[in-house]
Design a binder for these strands. Structure first.
Lengths: 192, 192
DNA sequence: GGTCTGAATTGCCAATTGGCAACAAATGTT
DNA sequence: AACATTTGTTGCCAATTGGCAATTCAGACC
């Protein structure tokens, strides 16, 4: 059901029947198995996915070579590296499917087609991008100034379905703590 | 010199002589003394400033009532609460001038005028907004996963002129550490 | 069922950071 | 200049979090 994307977008701006059909006719469903790569670090990103099911994870390596997970993306999220896509530069990180995933794939060519042909496309995508980035900075702000237990509880609130679907080590990295600390925090919570 | 704004914007998209004049004729210079409020928490934000000189600070209060500084804005930055401005909702935080400041002020009415009359306005501002948000999330990511000393050194690199112009207690809050820790880190660094 | 592999937990100890009180320095006001 | 106020520092100790080795657990595979 390709129209899932058009339906989703129509929350943020008007789409005509024609717009909706254009989208449906110029996108494809793609499946990913857990562990498969959607975006490879070092390469330019020329595609955007819209997630119908599953969880993707964005990670990169810091100066010490530690793997840092900085984002999870799941149902009704877009999956891409915005910076790489908009700026035509290599992605500094990797996006990997953490579970089986199904996405609606939009190539750059079709993205540009939509941008030209669909009057509200740019405004809709701008709205979504802004909202996503603001949500991210707001959540990160908490991680910076809170203790680890509070951060973990906030994570459960904000991403209630993610915790069962990804390794705790990645959640720990996302929260900026070690897997040991996360394990102890979870134990502490179940004891209360 | 009102054209400073048009000059700055022209880095990100084409502006005609006419566009430039429209901007100059529909913006005003405004001065702030240190301590004066630009955006008041709880109120809708209907203006955007472009900073010619000085430093502004955005802060809010967390659940425990602690003041959290989450952003500094200085020369050639825009100063506003994007979320409040775009979503027509009250600002959750306050923006205060930390030093004497001079800004080019754009009211919402004139913002909309520019949006209508200047063909590249939306695209330019979208580009700037995206860049600013991406820079912010990238910096915050470091704060989450690094130790405090590294974070402080990164702060000096990223905002070299801010440190001399704002209280260290606000820098500490921005970095997510206490003023005591920051004081010790600074001492440690000068000893090396 | 048995084996293998990676994920998660736990104990122990170290390093980092926080909290508080006291003090010093800088700034603003009269 | 004298005073008050705010900002920054330091010592002391507590709380949090990290690091590492050993162990347990869970799922994959034969």
């Amino acid at each position: 059901m390709q129209n899932h994307l058009a339906n989703h977008l129509s929350q943020f701006g008007k789409l005509s029947e024609k717009d909706s059909n254009l989208i449906a006719n110029n996108t494809t469903l793609v499946n990913f198995k857990a562990g498969e790569i959607f975006v490879e670090a070092g390469k330019n990103v020329n595609k955007v996915g819209f997630i119908l099911s599953g969880v993707f994870r964005y990670f990169f390596y810091d100066k010490e070579g530690n793997e840092i997970t900085s984002l999870f993306m799941s149902e009704n999220d877009f999956v891409t590296n915005i910076n790489s896509f908009y700026e035509y530069i290599p992605s500094s990180g990797t996006i990997v499917a953490e579970t089986e995933c199904v996405i609606i794939l939009i190539s750059r060519e079709n993205w540009e087609l939509f941008s030209k042909e669909i009057p509200s496309w740019n405004s809709i995508l701008q709205t979504i991008t802004n909202k996503a980035l603001l949500t991210k900075t707001n959540f990160q702000r908490k991680l910076i100034s809170q203790d680890a237990t509070t951060s973990y509880l906030d994570f459960l609130k904000q991403y209630p379905t993610i915790i069962q679907r990804v390794s705790l080590i990645h959640v720990a990295s996302f929260l900026g703590i070690t897997k040991f600390s996360l394990s102890r925090i979870r134990k502490q919570i179940t004891l209360e």
